[in-house]
């Protein structure tokens, strides 16, 4: 197709949308993902990330990752000073590829999970969490 400016813009926008990641993802997040995936493409699919829409307090935010075939799941808090949160590896005695934990979020941000599936492919899921400021006593 003819590479007009219109087409170039649409191509770029499409690429951003296709990547599924927030266009303003920090470099640290991108680096963490690249290290995890070895630069491989990340798609969508067998991975669910559950987090509250509004976190009552950023200090203790409950999250859950769930997958059917994930071997390893990495969680990143894209808006934290350093995005790494945790990496879950599932062993032979794991009944499911699900895990829950509680994390710290420095402010409103997208939490991202990347999973390495049994077939070697990578998928991702993200959840936007609003971290609130209270009135009196924070």
């Amino acid at each position: 197709m003819e590479l007009t400016r219109r087409n170039a813009i649409l191509l770029g926008a499409g690429a951003v949308l296709a990547s599924g990641l927030p266009a303003l993802a920090s470099t640290a997040t991108d680096d963490a993902i690249d290290t995890f995936t070895g630069g491989a493409a990340v798609g969508e699919g067998d991975l669910k990330l559950t987090a509250p829409e509004i976190a009552e307090n950023g200090n203790t935010v409950p999250i859950e990752v769930a997958s059917s075939t994930a071997v390893e799941i990495m969680v990143l808090a894209t808006g934290n000073p350093t995005p790494s949160v945790a990496t879950f590896k599932f062993g032979s005695m794991a009944a499911t590829r699900n895990a829950s934990t509680r994390i710290r979020l420095a402010g409103t941000q997208d939490v991202v999970a990347i999973a390495k599936l049994e077939d070697g492919s990578f998928v991702q899921a993200s959840s936007a969490v609003k971290v609130t400021i209270g009135g009196c006593g924070g």
């Binding site: 879950f88 590896k89 794991a94 994390i103």
Partner: peptide, 13 residues
């Protein structure tokens, strides 16, 4: 036999 092996970072509460 391993069930889970979790790497924690400072963002764990």
């Amino acid at each position: 036999e391993n069930v889970v092996d979790i790497k924690l970072e400072p963002a764990i509460s």
